[in-house]
């Protein structure tokens, strides 16, 4: 949709989502909300690692841009903190997730999207890679090497609060 007759409709929805998140936080996240109170369509999220995996102990900042046509169109989510993952571009932080593209549903929320991204950490798909280096390790079955590389980046690129942002 090129335009919407009611520009306020994503705002109303986003406020609702924010309230819902505050009353029912997402376990995968440290924080989620607008970057600035004056800019409801630009959010940030801080995602936690997954215990028991190579991403354990990690912490990543994500940038969430919400289009004016939200929720009919998906938000644009990028890793700001570099992450070593086959389906995330190491430099740009772009995420390869069909939920963020073709299979987006207006029934999803920002926090549900974050949950999906969190699940992506443990269910990589090396056959459609954005990070070919790590994907190639997976494809060649070098799981030890892949895990070591991921742990390395999870540790060194860890997001440590607003100072670094």
């Amino acid at each position: 949709m090129a335009s919407t007759s009611r520009p306020n409709s994503p705002l109303k929805r986003l406020l609702t989502e924010l309230q819902t998140y505050q009353s029912d936080p997402n376990d995968a996240l440290e924080e989620l909300g607008p970057v600035d109170d004056n800019e409801m369509t630009h959010w940030r999220a801080v995602m936690k690692g997954v215990p028991g995996t190579a991403y354990e102990g990690g912490c990543w900042l994500l940038d969430v841009q919400i289009p004016s046509t939200y929720p009919q169109k998906p938000p644009t989510v990028k890793f700001v903190t570099p992450i070593c993952h086959p389906n995330v571009d190491f430099k740009t932080g772009e995420i390869c997730l069909d939920l963020l593209k073709t299979s987006w549903s207006p029934a999803y929320t920002i926090t549900a999207t974050m949950t999906s991204i969190h699940q992506l950490l443990t269910s990589a798909e090396p056959d459609s890679p954005l990070n070919v280096d790590i994907a190639q390790l997976f494809r060649q079955g070098d799981y030890v090497g892949a895990e070591a590389l991921i742990r390395y980046y999870t540790e060194t690129e860890r997001y440590v609060g607003r100072r670094r942002y």
Binding site: C96, L97, D98, L99, T102, S116, S123, E125, D127
Partner: peptide
């Protein structure tokens, strides 16, 4: 049908990226 359903389909991934072939 979404184009990105290879065998061993996993819901989470979008399809191939042209970029991977050219940039990397």
């Amino acid at each position: 049908r979404p184009p990105e359903l290879p065998a061993g389909y996993s819901q989470q991934h979008t399809g191939h990226h042209a970029r991977t072939a050219t940039q990397v």
